[in-house]
Design a protein around this nucleic acid. Structure first.
Lengths: 251, 251
DNA sequence: CGCATTTTGTGCGATATATGAACAAATGTC
DNA sequence: GACATTTGTTCATATATCGCACAAAATGCG
């Protein structure tokens, strides 16, 4: 790609939108300039452009995004086959086992939920399509990392912020790499309260017809209700069925 | 705003992202140029920029969005108070009545789902945060339009594509305006299979502490299970409770 | 296969945008 | 209330982008 095939203003604008993530919903021009590393004048022009297009509101001091911004992510969710294909399977699976079922893909060091069927939310975590979790300590993340060539998986671990969310969290890259090998052998990953105390989950890879891993499927449940050691026996059969049913449908 | 405070390249790039909505997930340069009205050279630069940043993939022929694009919408969902505040209430409400509960806001002629708690999905419609429906024929849309000054509501109707999705759909602006007046008097809207045969729903406005309508809340159910005429009696009490509980929490 | 049609890539002049410094206004501090 | 900071805005100019026209591939079709 040539230098001139890159639109700097567009890239900067996208950076500005992402500056609104997680933290404050209301940002001043200077806030955005600081968070993005852009010049204040440039940040201001990006924000005014967003406001002009209806993606943001401006009260003279603070900018905040409007729901119109959801059009951008929705373009992906409604246009991409994966979320639409797996959703009905998640619904059925979730109802069958009485727990939340989700599907996700890898984006850098994080997993991104692309579809989800929730049961009564007892956990503190509130997840929807678009939600992100660190890959290294999530069951679906483990499955997706295990599907990569070892050098790639190790590179992603190296780029990750491997912090111990709980006393159960595995943070040693070598321990994690060994875990990936086990996952490849057994075909599933189990997380025992590594993300949050009281939360266990089990995940399997979703392969397409050509055998490539294109996503991960998981079931999450309170540890009190489904201890990690019981999960494979209890949930794997139903998950394997979904896995098999989806294989011929995935591109 | 001055002319020079607008970044054309950014606006064009956003238009390109939205071109992926609804239709095909895989678009060529020419497809995008046609759909957006942009010059091919410009569309190409926007697409290459998206690919360079990891928001899109390019196989030499087709572009498709990657899940990274969800960062943009997620910036809104995680940063804005409304979705996070209402989600637990929707969960409880949905479980209590055994039907799907949702919250949405108005964006132009459409409502945008900002949070949702789904029960077993019997309907053909698959809705998640970010999903859009025409306001004129959705229960939440009626509630939100009814909350606007009459001239504004009429202007939005005028801009809407008032098509009859079913034989029940009300499409006459005057009939709809009369319906809005009724909704203001009674405080709720009921839809009887106007969007899809077999689907009924009821909605109430969500007001903030200052009495401004900031969103709408609804319950949707199969007509076979909950005929439209029975909905107010059956669901309104629980919905009123949520309405009252949220009022002091909303900005 | 060869021609017509469509699609994609590129060079260039005209035009729009980014930059950083300078200034003005608002805010915070003592 | 005076001073120091931070913030928003403007401007001139260097730079990047736009869109056209054309060339090169790719595709469709009889």
């Amino acid at each position: 790609m040539r230098e001139t095939d890159f639109i700097g203003g567009f890239a900067k604008g996208l950076k500005v939108i992402e500056a609104f993530g997680e933290t404050q919903p209301r940002l001043t021009i200077s806030d955005v300039a600081r968070d993005t590393g852009l010049d204040r004048a440039t940040a201001r022009r990006c924000l005014l452009t967003l406001a002009e297009l209806g993606y943001a509101r401006y009260d003279g001091k603070f900018f905040e995004l409007t729901p119109r911004i959801l059009r951008l992510g929705h373009a992906y969710l409604s246009a991409t086959p994966l979320p639409r294909l797996v959703q009905p399977f998640l619904d059925r699976l979730s109802e069958e086992v009485g727990q939340s079922a989700s599907a996700s893909v890898l984006d850098g060091t994080e997993i991104v939920y692309v579809a989800r069927a929730a049961q009564k939310r007892v956990m503190s975590i509130n997840l929807t399509a678009g939600s992100r979790l660190p890959a290294y300590c999530a069951s679906m993340g483990r499955v997706l990392l295990a599907a990569l060539p070892e050098t790639e998986a190790r590179a992603i671990l190296a780029a990750s912020d491997l912090k111990a969310n709980t006393s159960f969290t595995k943070t040693d890259p070598d321990v994690l790499m060994a875990e990936f090998a086990r996952i490849r052998r057994e075909g599933h990953a189990v997380i025992d309260q590594e993300l949050e105390i009281g939360l266990c989950s089990i995940a399997v890879p979703l392969e397409n017809a050509r055998g490539r891993v294109v996503a991960a499927l998981n079931i999450g449940a309170p540890a009190a209700h489904a201890p990690a050691v019981d999960m494979p026996e209890r949930y794997l059969p139903a998950m394997r069925a979904v896995q098999a049913a989806l294989r011929p449908l995935l591109a």
